[in-house]
Design a protein around this nucleic acid. Sequence first.
DNA 1: GAATGTTTATCTTGCA
DNA 2: TGCAAGATAAACATTC
Length: 457
Amino acid sequence: MLSLSCADPWPEGSMGLEEKVVTTAGQTRERDRVVDTNNNNNNIFCSSINLDDSLTSLQWLQEFPIVGASVSQRANQQLHLFSQPQGSDTPASPLVEDPTSMQLTPRTPTAVASSRVQSLPGIMAPCHCLDEVDYKTNAHIRPPYSYATLICMAMQASKKTKITLSCIYQWITDNFCYYRYADPNWQNTIRHNLSLNKCFIKVPRRKDEPGRGSFWKVNPQYAECLLSSAYKKRRMAPVQSDLALQDKLRVNLQPQPKSQRLLREFKEATAAEQNCYPHQGTMPGSLPVVREGGGNKRHAPSVATINGDSKVLRRSNSPLFPVDEQKEIGPLKEDFDWDALLDSALSGKLNLEGGEPFSCIMKEEDLTVRGTLITPGEASVGTADTPVLVENQASNDVPDFDEEAFLATTFLENLRPEEEEQGHSDFLCSSTVNVDQLFDLGESLGGDPNFWIDSLL
DNA sequence: GAATGTTTATCTTGCA
DNA sequence: TGCAAGATAAACATTC
């Protein structure tokens, strides 16, 4: 179960002021992360943004292991999204299907980071599946998420419109034990990502607000692009490329919940009808993969000695979290489900129009984008009354699937209920989608329903 | 001084 | 082979 803490550990009082944050003139640096404020198009495909830019797209979302997370629930046709009741006993850590799941013997970070790859063909240990790793308690396995993903997860889990850097740190360390003991250099990478990644927007702290540093939020324009980007081609590790092999491995080597098997069989059956999935190999439904060594040196952050001469992040009394920040943050108890983000869109919780899940922020406050002040009016890229779908796709350097995504989005918008103004992150909290809806989506697109379902799964 | 934020450089892997 | 993407490291500036 892909679940992250999503309780409201961020007391309202702590963020109350932030809702009215006004950009101060104290920005000493102007960043070039510019939202096209003149573009009043509610362009769901972000025509003003080159999504293919490095660190621009939400392609990292595709890296999120969506399938393993809730496929069994889907098989039940009732997909309960972000709906773990507060205080439930469900694991608060991501990808926790069974909190008592594996605890690998200590290894070097590099070795464990690629444990999945190593455990594949022939040597795949049924239990050693990252889907079942409790990252909250397992300090030896690096979570297979990019830093951008981690940041966004923290933002989503906070259920707040914006969070501080220290909150991000804390959420990560609270939910990923690995980073609790890792060399704190990863924090540098977090900061680097926040600064560089266009998906994140800095919201300056008001001068009368105590604390240090700015707040950060997800760029709503990229939230808009969630769906379309979710269909984007993803990079595939070699072990992923062979879908047949992958399926075989998953079917034969991994113990699957019954519901999961049923869904798989169902998909296989429907796939046989449709012959093939033209995009399947690139869909986010693939297994999450820990790429061997990650992106660069492909080694995990060095793990500090647990005995602790090194700087080690501790949960509550870390110097990373000043008193005022710690008051903002409580233990994260709710679950967090990324595929629910997509599902929320399907069920209409994810507003694809001018609002968007994060747009409530934009309506209420000024913010800076790469140092550029964005007023609420400017920030709004459209209105609910006048949704502007892509007029200028040609200028959008987006692949051909945009047309499909366009249709999908149009369909999804038709599903959208009233809650768009309910605001904040509540859109993530409760929603259900059944498989029929997914099929309706596929059919409404006039294409292969399996493609869409596979895409969304 | 520590935390935060920005920028640059480098490296590795996967993909076209 | 070149590019994209992500990770890492480091230097530097700003703020508290």
